[in-house]
Computed example of a mutant assay.
Amino acid sequence: MSIARRVGSRVRSPRTVLATVGARSEQVRPHWAARLEDVKNAVVGRGLRRLHWDLRLQPFHGYGSSTRVRVMAKVLYSSPGTPADFHDQPVHDMRTMAVRGWRNFASQVVPYSTVHVLLGGQEFSVRADRSGIIDAEIDIDLPPGDHRAVLWTVPGNEVTADITVFPTGANVGLVSDIDDTVMVTWLPRPLLAFWNAFVVHQSSRQVVPGMPMLYQRLAREHTAMPVMYLSTGAWNVFPVLKRFLYKNGYPDGPLLLTDWGPTNTGFFRSGRAHKERALRRLVADFPGMRWILVGDDGQHDPSIYADFASELPDHVEAILLRQLTESEQLLAHGTLRPLAQQRRGTHAPPMATAPDGHGLLAELERAGELP
């Protein structure tokens, strides 16, 4: 089969799509922590290449429309002999998924690598950023449904990535936070990365009661509803979170995570800014979609969602907030009460608050949002 090679104008970087002030600030002289990380990556990378370590890809779940898809992955070094598909095990392979978390935190990224993508019988070339992350938009015509993209850096290390193309007729989607919204961790937020990486027993994670049922009910009510999981968690814990969602009956969908390393503008990335950018990108990707925004009242979800609804009211279907207990509030931000939030705008979308998914479902039914 002949493969048409598509590069250049057919692949769009997220920065060309999101021409914002924040994106332009990435072009200034990098922060000293980012420069230090670049030096570390270069030195360690040279050492691993001398030891004949290979390049491996960790694919993430991509998404898109019938004319454009977003492909996401991470380029890493792996020791000689590591199978090329080490990061491509089925999500139901619990044993493999359990050991993957700590390896991801210990892995060395490969910045600025060229990655080839085969999708829909066409080949594209994309490039990783300084953190080894592939995040590229590809213009391609695909029918709605689940697709598999083949990614590789050199022949022999191919992996496959899930790509979900949402139907054109879908007009309501769901965006859900993860920590303390669908999953209770019972740990202070700064320890979540360590917990997700090293605690591998399913019994150590608690699902929020009723949340899977709520999401499944919403999916039945809104046919072909896209489901996106938006979190400030690191890409390193993608396999562990995928496993948790699968095990507990949540609808499958892409995860929108972030890289916790230094940026060109600071030592740490802003979790709030990550969520705000992700929501605006979804509006750009699906201009006709209205989103059900689900989060918790332990951090900044209420204000993020309220600001977003005030700015773009035509793109918000409803806001659902899980109310944390006093103990969970203490672990989330150090006080027993929710952070002070300010509702903005005069045309606020429907909002429901409850301690769990059962209560949120009852609130939606009571308000007439669900039959």
Rank of each mutant, 00 (worst) to 15 (best):
E311G: 00
L119I: 09
H358S: 09
E311V: 00
A340M: 14
P167D: 00
A340L: 14
I133A: 09
E311I: 01
T168L: 02
E328T: 02
S113G: 10
Y250F: 14
L321R: 10
E276R: 12
L293E: 02
D252A: 08
D180K: 00
M72N: 09
A193Y: 02
V44G: 08
R46M: 15
E123F: 08
V115C: 06
R95H: 07
S327C: 06
S79L: 11
T232F: 10
T223L: 12
A23H: 00
D307T: 12
L339W: 08
Y246M: 09
L151D: 11
T16P: 05
P30Y: 01
V172N: 00
P111Q: 06
P226I: 00
G120L: 02
G233V: 02
G334L: 14
Q341R: 15
H116N: 15
G45A: 09
A219N: 11
H222D: 01
M72F: 09
R217M: 10
R189M: 13
S107V: 01
L76C: 05
R205A: 13
V184N: 07
L76S: 05
H201I: 13
E123K: 08
H222P: 01
A234T: 09
S310A: 12
W235A: 08
A352H: 06
Y112E: 13
G298Y: 11
W53R: 02
W102P: 07
D162L: 11
T20R: 12
H92T: 08
W260V: 07
L230S: 06
Q323A: 11
Q58P: 03
R148H: 10
V91E: 13
Q216N: 14
A98W: 00
V316T: 11
L245R: 01
D180I: 01
L214A: 04
G64T: 04
T82M: 12
L174I: 15
T160E: 04
Q89V: 08
Y215A: 05
